[in-house]
Design a binder for these strands. Structure first.
Length: 280
DNA sequence: TGCCAGGATGATG
DNA sequence: CATCATCATGGC
């Protein structure tokens, strides 16, 4: 990966295959949105930034090298070689097609707490409504970072609120899940940072004990929030997809199932006709 | 309008 | 262990 300092930020020049549109709007995160200039705007670790994509690279506006290393290198997982991964994935025809359809996807390493709450909200829900709910929660309980832009509220802040507060924001029956989850985390009963480095099975079992967290949400939190790229939030679905081709699951797809699944998920959402008889 | 959404829970066979 | 009604809400 190569970066250079520009007059307006840090530019990444040799990850041109990274597509902001594909990465930030493929169902793995819910807070990024393009502004009127086509720049993507979002908040990570309490920092609000805009990112611009042009022909020869991606510029994170208004940051220095220190912030790049501290926040953005990890967030975009720039240390991982996606060219190599996609080459390995292509042993399977369906995944190959998925990678060719959206080669610019990368799986983000989101903040554990935010991923935890947003994927609790995601259950039996659609992406556009999830985005709305998350936005309203941030506006109501986050800190204002810029005009109309709010941080994702802390566990301590959300723990102060009764479930009714979240219900009023449209969370529905998930409202009580959110407030109890916030209490668990704020009281230290659930330590997401610890789970990042805990054995995978232990981390998963712990997440499953949380009220409102089942296998799917647990795997989403593991993959998107805890950096466990071997977990696949839709593993049964993945196996069906691969079996439909009569193919074997390549080893790399087992080791990086979450990443492979992200390519497939986006592909399936755009070409549902290619997945008839596979989706449920 | 009815159906669906990155599902989980609790009750019941 | 498997099935199933139920949950709240908005997009389509």
């Amino acid at each position: 990966m190569k970066t250079e300092k520009t007059h307006d930020g840090i530019k990444i020049t040799d990850i041109s295959k990274l597509s902001l549109a594909q990465t930030l709007d493929c169902g793995q995160c819910f807070r990024w949105k393009p502004d009127e200039n086509g720049n993507w705007c979002g908040v990570v670790k309490g920092v609000y930034r805009k990112i611009r994509q042009d022909e020869d690279g991606i510029t994170i506006l208004g940051i220095d090298e220190d912030e790049f290393e501290k926040i953005w290198f990890d967030y975009f997982d720039f240390g991982r070689d996606y060219d190599s991964l996609k080459a390995d994935f292509s042993a399977n025809e369906m995944i190959k097609n998925a990678c060719e359809f959206s080669p610019g996807i990368r799986v983000l390493r989101q903040e554990p707490w935010e991923a935890f709450i947003t994927f609790i909200i995601s259950q039996n829900n659609n992406i556009s409504r999830i985005k709305g709910i998350v936005e309203r929660i941030c506006t109501a309980f986050g800190e204002e970072l810029a005009e109309g832009v709010y941080s994702f509220p802390t566990a301590e802040r959300l723990a102060q609120e009764p479930a009714e507060s979240f219900a009023k924001l449209g969370c529905g029956y998930r409202a009580e899940y959110i407030s109890s989850a916030a209490k668990e985390v704020s009281e230290g009963e659930l330590d997401l940072e610890y789970l990042m480095n805990a054995p995978l099975g232990e981390a998963r079992e712990r997440l499953l004990k949380v009220h409102g967290v089942g296998p799917k949400v647990a795997d989403c939190v593991l993959l998107y929030g805890l950096g466990r790229v071997e977990r696949c939030p839709a593993d049964v679905w993945m196996k069906r997809v691969i079996a439909a081709l009569g193919g074997e699951m390549p080893q790399c797809v087992t080791d990086y199932a979450g990443i492979a699944q992200q390519f497939l998920f986006h592909y399936a959402r755009n070409f549902p006709e290619k997945f008839v008889g596979i989706n449920k």
